[in-house]
């Protein structure tokens, strides 16, 4: 731990030295002596997701920057209305309309199995914000994936942090897997349902049963089954 800190420290010293030399070089080329007003520092992150599943389209990726003390979901607690809508239908508009979020972005298209999608989000003068990425697994009742309140404070410009995400169950809709309740192409149903007809807490998802697997109400097949992890998510700090 101590060694790691030392390494980080020397890296920042090096960065400072580079920055200083760059500054003095600028001064040589430039005889203006006025002190420029401080420029806002923009932090831009590019989020790239890759869908690792066999047959689960991920709904348009929702991206949000927010304070660390407000994870957008917690296992064992009730899903917000915005998350319930996202997890049941793939519609992330209410999830991203949360006024406590500092910056948001969304992909325009779903990310299909085997495909990748990139979304960027920017914020000014806030190195301490954390990142949430979320998407529904479309051929399910209320499965979603992503991560919430990821710490970005150690991410330097040009650095990438990659992790994989698991499938969660919003707990707001029973996992009937019926055509009416699955909004993805396998079902073509409505998606969102009124109220909270399941146990109403977020948990890990138990997986797809499918019709062949013995769930008579299911419109899903073995193609729609998944195991963890379900998405690979890379976050690169662009500036």
């Amino acid at each position: 731990m101590k060694r790691l800190n030392k390494t980080l420290y020397s890296v920042s010293l090096l960065a400072m030295a580079l920055a200083l030399s760059a500054c003095s070089h600028d001064d040589d080329d430039n005889e203006i002596s006025e002190v420029a007003p401080p420029q806002p520092v923009t932090y831009t992150y590019q989020i790239k997701v890759t869908n690792l599943t066999s047959g689960q389209p991920a709904s348009p990726i929702a991206v949000a920057l927010h304070n660390a003390d407000m994870p957008l979901w917690t296992i064992g607690e009730s899903a917000s209305d915005g998350l319930a809508l996202l997890a049941e239908s793939g519609d992330n508009s209410e999830f991203l309309a949360n006024t406590a979020l500092l910056a948001t972005a969304s992909a325009e298209q779903p990310t299909l199995p085997g495909e990748s999608m990139e979304v960027s989000v920017s914020i000014e003068d806030n190195a301490a914000s954390t990142l949430t990425v979320a998407a529904m697994l479309g051929n399910t009742n209320d499965a979603f994936t992503g991560f919430t309140a990821m710490d970005l404070s150690q991410l330097e410009v040009g650095e990438t942090s990659t992790r994989v995400s698991v499938a969660y169950d919003a707990g707001t809709e029973e996992n009937t897997e019926s055509a009416m309740s699955v909004p993805g192409p396998a079902g073509g149903g409505e998606g969102p349902s009124e109220g909270r007809e399941a146990h109403d807490f977020v948990s890990m998802h138990p997986g797809i049963v499918s019709a062949e697997g013995g769930l008579s109400s299911s419109v899903l097949t073995s193609d729609h089954r998944f195991d963890n992890p379900v998405l690979r998510i890379s976050v690169m700090r662009m500036e």
């Binding site: 996992n175 009937t176 890990m204 998802h205 138990p206 997986g207 049963v209 697997g213």
Partner: peptide, 11 residues
Amino acid sequence: DNTVQRWLNPV
């Protein structure tokens, strides 16, 4: 119950 009493790792 095949819709509730199953799991995927981690548990």
